[in-house]
Nucleic acid binder design. Sequence first.
DNA 1: CAAAATTAATTAAACGATTAATTGTTGGCA
DNA 2: TGCCAACAATTAATCGTTTAATTAATTTTG
Lengths: 224, 224
Amino acid sequence: MTRAKPPAKPRRAAGRPARDERDLRAHLLDVALARFARDGIGATPLRAIAADAGVTPAMLHYYFGDKAQLKQAVIDERLLPALAPMRERLAQAGGEPAALAGSFVRGIGALVAAHPWLPPLWVREVLCEGGELREVLFHHLLPSLPQLLAQRFAAAKAAGALNPGLDPRLLVVSLVGLTLFPAAGAPIWRRVFQADDLGPGALLDHTLALLEGGLGSRPSGVSA
Amino acid sequence: MTRAKPPAKPRRAAGRPARDERDLRAHLLDVALARFARDGIGATPLRAIAADAGVTPAMLHYYFGDKAQLKQAVIDERLLPALAPMRERLAQAGGEPAALAGSFVRGIGALVAAHPWLPPLWVREVLCEGGELREVLFHHLLPSLPQLLAQRFAAAKAAGALNPGLDPRLLVVSLVGLTLFPAAGAPIWRRVFQADDLGPGALLDHTLALLEGGLGSRPSGVSA
DNA sequence: CAAAATTAATTAAACGATTAATTGTTGGCA
DNA sequence: TGCCAACAATTAATCGTTTAATTAATTTTG
């Protein structure tokens, strides 16, 4: 056992005060989250997080125990709360495929705007095999959200309101890719095209335009 | 300097023969590529590659020098050759936006079918900030291919053949996301939807159907 | 009410495990 | 016998973690 037990609940009785008025624990969580999103969880040394936060690595063990518990704290106190609003948004979206897709795309857009660390973290730790967030999210977000959306698309297809060539499940996959991938790769595309006008808002508007209007200038399906 | 100089060109003159009739160097490259794609370059110990190949880690240093040179060899002799055919495909595609997009999407589909390691490697090492393949690809693939495609979309837009709400550059981004993301995440979606019919072929067909037909069963833009 | 004891917060230093990289050596083929 | 692929052993660096010492506030005590 360590000398001073890590205070699961910071009891303010006596002792040296935290350096900042802001809770150091919350600050460490934010710094760790930024590093995890940028470099990946496994590739981030605790030394790097400590250096970014201006403390020694021992502080991370003091507040969180070990690295696994730090990861769990980031998940519980940052990632899952950030993802929560998507459920309600999907529940109250309209039944038309365009409205449903638009609501979902706009929901991801709002999520990304509020939490810029989300796309890289998602891409690296969920999409990649062996990602360290996969198992966790499989028990929180993934069993409900995609299937709920797919069921609503399936209902629209049964009602004849959906393009019959589309699969409700694969449509969900396409929508996620259409929104998360460009957001995660925005720095790359800005550099490739040497353009500064490819911000999150432009990406979101463009995705909606593509979904609503299709590729051609004339309504698709009606040739000439 | 090491004792025996690494044979940049495996000169088969004398000495102990390679264990397999197949060139051991090529075999090591394949094994390293598989591990790099599955676990990431930085997260793959040379020990793991050596164990997979049935040799000692010293052999990797013997053939490639250090880990950076092994990475470079994988890039030069596996990744870049695999990506090369996309150039020719794009050059001889039609000028209509739908034909152009379809050719690009089909090209990525063919690429993924021939090299299953491509999506995870791309997602992890190119898309993620700090990815170890970014700088290399910025000097080979990225300066030419996306801009070529964007220019052809721009020409179509000038001719009035493209949905005016679309940006030629962002359309390229969307197409890449629409194809690479579902391919990279296929294992996840198979598990989420508990379905086995979400193979690469189904993904490709679905993406094409979405691009050509849009969301609704009626031509978009013509309401009621 | 000041000095001592107490306790939380923080730092510095070190340990053990793992990894990349190097070095010395062996064994088989020409 | 000369040469070189292959291997074992070693070295150096890095990472997670632990331990002990230090600092600064609160609480207790004389």
